[in-house]
Amino acid sequence: MKPSQNSYVTLAIVVAMMLAGACQSGQKRSPVLIEDLDELSSNAGIKSFNQIIHLYPSPAEMLSVIDMSELNFDASLLNPLDRADQYIDSQLKTYALGIYMTDLAYTALFLRHEESLNYLEVVKSLAADININEAVDEAMIEKVRNNVEYLDSLYNISNEAFINVLSFCERNEKPNTVVMLSAGAFLESLYLAVHMVDDYESADMLLQHLADQKYTIDNFMLFANSLETDDLNVIATLKDFEKLKIIYDGIKPGTGGVTVKTSEDADENQPKKLVIGGTGKASQPSLTEEEFESLKAVVIEMRNKAVSINQ
């Protein structure tokens, strides 16, 4: 069948339009002011939205702030592997999954290959139990198995597992799962961190890290409370987290201004860089010894309840 002349004309128009579109996309990075933006926004009948997204670091990022080089690996702090199959309710399994993901990050940060593999297996199994098995698959476990020589990659894999799970839940609209998972992960990271403080007087860095979690719990609680869920397990978990929030709300938030300056060490290949600093130690939140002891007691109580099979 011979194509008609009209088909050629149509094809030519399509190609011309596609080329025009392609040329247009090349202009996207030229910044130009729009002068009538306010006017457009105020047109009657046009809806605009202001969306607020509360974000917080992964457990691996929370723990990686701590200098592990001067600390010893303590397996007794971790939730035992054999307890994983004893959680029955799906939300409690999710809570436990968050805890195990932090334990995975802990083993990865200490470069413990065998333990990391074991905890990743548990994470995979629990993820499958709550139908998010796409997020942590066999390929990820193979990656750990095959990276015995590259122990640094354990950290990246543990981080990737957490990010995959959150992305999967977001994609599939499972906000309660995100809350329970994040709550478990955050609680376990606090539990591990409070146990790393041997002596209040000589644990400056660790105490600062714990105090800085004020910002993390603020963002987490804002996110969790914005859901207004009616899931009883989520409600009970958030009620428990209010105890932590009260302690964090009570600590000194840090005083003094923020300094912003353009960095002097920026080079041509890097984007413009600003340095954001506080004005001295007082600009950061800090924990008194009494506050630290209260925090430690609440964290241990909450965590022991969280890992208990008979909740």
């Binding site: 457009l40 926004s41 046009i46 809806k47 605009s48 939205f49 202001n50 969306q51 607020i52 997204i53 509360h54 974000l55 917080y56 670091p57 992964s58 990022e61 702030v65 990246n156 981080n159 957490f162 990010i163 959150l166 800085d212 910002y215 993390t216 963002n219 804002l222 860089k273 954001i276 950061q284």
Partner: peptide, 28 residues
């Protein structure tokens, strides 16, 4: 390294999105 608080969302030219992000100290 990739920071886990990287995020994407839907937006129109009329919308505003606010990302509340926690940045740890001593990092670029």
């Amino acid at each position: 390294d990739f920071y886990s608080q990287s995020h994407s969302a839907k937006i129109s030219a009329l919308d505003t999105i606010e990302f509340n992000v926690v940045f740890y100290g001593q990092k670029d």
